[in-house]
Design a protein around this nucleic acid. Sequence first.
DNA 1: ATAATATCCTACCAAATAAGTAGGAAATTC
DNA 2: GAATTTCCTACTTATTTGGTAGGATATTAT
Lengths: 145, 145
Amino acid sequence: MLSKKTQYAFRALTHLAENYGEGPVLISDISERRKIPLKFLENILNEMKKAGILESKKGKGGGYILKMAPNKIKLSTVIRLVNGPIALLPCVSLNFYRKCDDCDETNCGLRRVMAITRDATLKILEKKTLADIVFEEQAGPKTLR
Amino acid sequence: MLSKKTQYAFRALTHLAENYGEGPVLISDISERRKIPLKFLENILNEMKKAGILESKKGKGGGYILKMAPNKIKLSTVIRLVNGPIALLPCVSLNFYRKCDDCDETNCGLRRVMAITRDATLKILEKKTLADIVFEEQAGPKTLR
DNA sequence: ATAATATCCTACCAAATAAGTAGGAAATTC
DNA sequence: GAATTTCCTACTTATTTGGTAGGATATTAT
Ligand code: FES
Ligand code: FES
């Protein structure tokens, strides 16, 4: 499961995506409108800035902006940044690889299945971007299952 | 990511699957051969028994057995049992649904994408069973990536 | 200059979860 | 009734999560 922090990150990014091209948005603004604890949000946004997907400006008229267009920011990027590995096992993670203790990697059946799972997940998360999330929200209420 | 406990569970189950039809296997046996902390493994196996996928016998000649054939035990079942939800958000979990705080479900773009991701993951994990894991191991070393 | 506005930085804290241990009770077999 | 083996309850410890506090630093406006 994604951490609460990651959910906050997405909510904030969605907000920024909606305001893309209209200048900086205040942390306090995002915090209020999206119901995210202010100080926590500060940290989150700052992290994403350091990671290169946000830009910031201090002082009056300042705030945060997406560093690139919403359709350039992949969900996989955000998740890896804020949440960590996408794979279900360290040994099949592309970006956070770590060997499994006491398990023979070249011979591990679980590992192979989890590699397949990772690929299926990634196929979606590498394709979907913030723009897709915004679009879905504007498409109006939908019930899903 | 799957917890270490879940990895242990899978290692143990794989071992039991390999010995399926040959009578009970001792906890201590699994513990040694698969390098899993004994007392921890005790708890894990017992949990899975209560959940209905294992059977046990006490006393001499006792031990654990799979309650059904390896190809009847889905990976999704095991993960849900030991690890918890498979979905990336509580609001899209089929078996562990919980509402997200401060997020309008009927209108949430992230939710929709995560529902798609969940489906893709489940499509694999509901299909693959312990038998597949065992088969992969017997298919011999393979390098993946 | 200097006050006001905002982000940035360092550090800390509490609650929850994960990972594992200890010790004996209960059932089964020999 | 002794040996074997799982079962049960409870505890401990380490790590991660979800924050908070307080001031430093940069920018703008007067
Ligand atoms: S090598 Fe990672 S689970 Fe076997
Ligand atoms: S409702 Fe679950 S993330 Fe929006």
